[in-house]
Design a protein around this nucleic acid. Structure first.
Lengths: 199, 199
DNA sequence: ACGCTATGTCAACAAGTGATTACAAAAAAA
DNA sequence: TTTTTTTGTAATCACTTGTTGACATAGCGT
């Protein structure tokens, strides 16, 4: 590729709009953090995706950690799962998780699971998770031990995602996907309904 | 600390025993991989813990990846959970996971969860997980969808571990630990027994 | 038109990574 | 003992990481 000297398009500099730039960085950060997890996500890759100079990340967000804090935790939200009759909660959640082909380029739960093992990111995820996910879910649960069951529901979903999508165990064990979905739905529904083991 | 020149103990070189050295590296690797996860674990830290020169890791195991492959996957084993009556499987598993203070300095499941998000380590964990964990577990399950239920049991345990120990959601949400344990036991037991949702 | 400040660019740094090489020396073989 | 092989050491490579400071300039207020 020897088009060295001649009429190169001199890469025209960015329009100067701090708000738009920060927003672009945030969006790119969500995608990359979601794809790679906190540790494996590089600031340079984020910057490139946002078509922004790397230094701007630190200018606008102080650090990679600051960027993550503003990008990912605010997106943790399960209200789509909570809208609707809780009698079909298990079915809804299972359908959402089993065999789904990732449509959007960013899924908060993926980002959560992929970054949960990072020592830098985990503390940032803790608070958001309990206040934005577990607490609202527990609110919708009747019966005893609502908080505990909410914890288990989220754990189960996170664990399922970890095993199915990251480790691919479902495919590796040649599991019957419809059957897996049914079992998952039943388990989640049991946790969502009044506890079976406590009076 | 000015003891520069005088009678420093010249660090006497290692006894030369290839087998013992490799074993020391393996043991140290398990601990460090378990504590940090694959990506965050450094070869230098492993070598230091094993009191071994870094280059020996590559000499004996070819690469960091080779070391991981020989160190962690072979230790994945749930036979302790499978020994005994399956009627109390849920109780046994729950007791093992809730509120336990890590006693041993290496727990295979911790290493699994902490490394599952690594793109390098995940492929190495897949096969071991399905053949050494899920398959034996499914073998012990009666009723329909044994493989699918085994997948869900392992997913649930991994997810619980992820949320409870890495993210600390149980403490963050001020969950009642005994109640949490009871709910977890009930859920696992339900999965271990004949499927409730399929005839 | 001016200057000033916010915004963006560029190059570099310090620290870390896994891996490799050349060499020293102990142990084994001759 | 002499030679050969195995084991361990030390230095360094090539590379990536997050971060920073010096510089350029667009665009606004005056």
């Amino acid at each position: 590729m020897g088009n060295a000297s001649a009429h190169e398009t001199p890469p025209e500099p960015r329009k100067r709009d701090a708000a738009a730039t920060a927003a672009a960085i945030l969006e790119a950060a969500r995608v990359v953090f979601g794809e790679r997890g906190y540790d494996a996500a590089g600031t340079r890759e984020i910057a490139e995706r946002a078509q922004v100079n790397v230094a701007l990340i630190n200018r606008y967000f102080g650090s990679k950690e600051g960027l993550f804090a503003q990008a990912v935790p605010p997106t943790l939200d399960i209200s789509p799962l909570l809208d609707g009759d809780m009698a079909s909660f298990g079915e809804r959640a299972a359908s959402l998780f089993v065999g789904k082909v990732m449509q959007a380029d960013y899924d908060p739960l993926v980002a959560l699971v992929r970054s949960a093992t990072s020592q830098d990111a985990a503390p940032l995820l803790r608070k958001a998770l309990s206040t934005q996910v577990i607490a609202p879910l527990a609110e919708r649960l009747d019966g005893a031990n609502a908080t505990e069951r909410a914890n288990l529901i989220v754990s189960h979903l996170a664990g399922f995602h970890l095993m199915a999508n990251l480790l691919g165990t479902a495919e590796a064990t040649q599991a019957d996907l419809p059957a897996l979905r049914a079992e998952l739905a039943a388990t989640l529904q049991a946790l969502a309904e009044t506890s079976p083991s406590v009076d």
